[in-house]
Computed example of a mutant assay.
Amino acid sequence: MAVETRHRAYRYRCYPTPSQAENLIRTFGCVRLVYNKALDARTKAWYRRKERVGYAETSALLTKWKRRSDLAFLNEVSSVPMQQALRHLQKGFAHFFEGRTGYPRFKKKRVLSGAAEYTKSAFTFRSGELRLAKQDAPLRIKWSRPLPAAADPSAVTVSRDGAGRWFVSLLVEEDIAALPQRSEEVGIDAGITSLFTLSTGEHVTSPRHERRGRLRIRQRQRDLSRKQQGSANYRKAQVRLARAHARVSDRRHDFLHKLTTRLVRENQTIVVEDLSVRGMLSNHTLARAISDASWSTFRRMLAYKADWYGRDLVVVDRYLPSSKTCSECGTMRQAIPLNVRTFRCPSKRCGHSEDRDVNAAKNILAAGLAVAACGDGVRPKRS
């Protein structure tokens, strides 16, 4: 059984003391300020002087900023998270020049949320105690699951979400063993009523987390609209609204984690479609249901879990006519309205009749196996 050493992040709830929270909030603000100033400097240098500014130049700028009297507060927090912000900006520009993402954007000032990354020089981790730079005591962490034996974190990220919850993420190197080989293969067709339909005939019903939490969110939004903006009651209402959204998000992620883990454990080859979720969101009738389905998150989870455990994830072309093709004989029929849930083969010789989504999932599996057999890439080529 193959064992590979990989980087893996373990995320936990943490409960900083008032003094620690004050220092972390100040660090979040300094990280945001340095990131935005560096982005502004790089943008102006290019558009005004056609000069390329990289990480080394922004790091030198940070040293100058810390010497200014109006920016002296930058010296009150650890310098490592600010240096990491400059590295993240450099990575953002690298992805932009590779055509993978858009141009880096400025970070918005938020009341509660923020994040700061610490490397090894800015924290110590001994006997299960994490002590950050410029902190007077170890950070209190709720160890909801154990770290790997003899874990030595290489980076620590402390974050706070809009609901006011604190989290700490520890990046460690872990030996992950591949799962035993299996013969099972599955194709997955994404939907709305049935969140996913498998080629085995199984329908995964959509939990509709957003619909279940919609009334609570609507009430919190109504309460927020009645508060005076900027007041203490307004901030309290903001937190209550954020907690309602976080409740929906946590349930959705828990469901997707359990589903993707089961699929990876039970199948050797998993085939999915390359869906254009952004384009599908332009359909205002189904946009809310599509957002709640979180197909992109589902695929991302499948990708890294399949990579960890030695499974094969194949992504077929989004233009594959899986819903219009007969999975038995390959005959293609005209477009099928969404309200027609049964596929009937137009060929008189075949006469195959099957659930529309199961038929599509079988076609997705067949196309994925063909792609894998021909040695093509796991993702369709894009022009």
Rank of each mutant, 00 (worst) to 15 (best):
S59A: 02
F298D: 06
F343G: 08
S294R: 13
Y47V: 13
A246C: 09
I270P: 06
D312V: 06
K348H: 12
R243Q: 10
F196V: 15
R160L: 04
S78W: 05
A306Q: 08
R100Y: 12
A41R: 06
R182H: 07
D376N: 04
R226I: 00
R49K: 12
L256E: 14
A367S: 01
E57H: 13
H284V: 00
A151I: 14
R105N: 15
S291M: 15
H7E: 15
G368F: 01
D223A: 04
V277S: 06
V371Q: 15
H7R: 15
H7N: 06
E185A: 09
A366D: 14
A116G: 01
S154T: 06
A2F: 14
R11N: 06
I141N: 00
V80T: 14
R110A: 00
S353D: 00
G92V: 11
H209E: 14
G128V: 11
A246E: 15
R311E: 10
D376K: 11
L302H: 02
Y319T: 06
R240Q: 13
N267M: 04
T197E: 08
L89H: 02
R240V: 08
L139V: 13
R11H: 10
K50N: 03
R13W: 07
S323P: 15
L241P: 00
A367P: 03
D189T: 05
D312N: 08
D40V: 01
K66N: 05
N359E: 12
P153K: 11
V80W: 10
A366T: 10
L224A: 13
R220V: 07
A122S: 14
Y10M: 09
K109C: 08
Y304N: 08
T260K: 13
N267P: 00
S323G: 13
Y10G: 03
R252H: 07
L132A: 05
P138Q: 03
E328A: 15
E273P: 03
P104D: 03
M280T: 09
S206C: 10
S294P: 05
T5K: 15
S294Q: 12
C345S: 08
R341P: 00
E22N: 04
G164C: 05
R299M: 11
R252S: 02
S231I: 09
L338C: 00
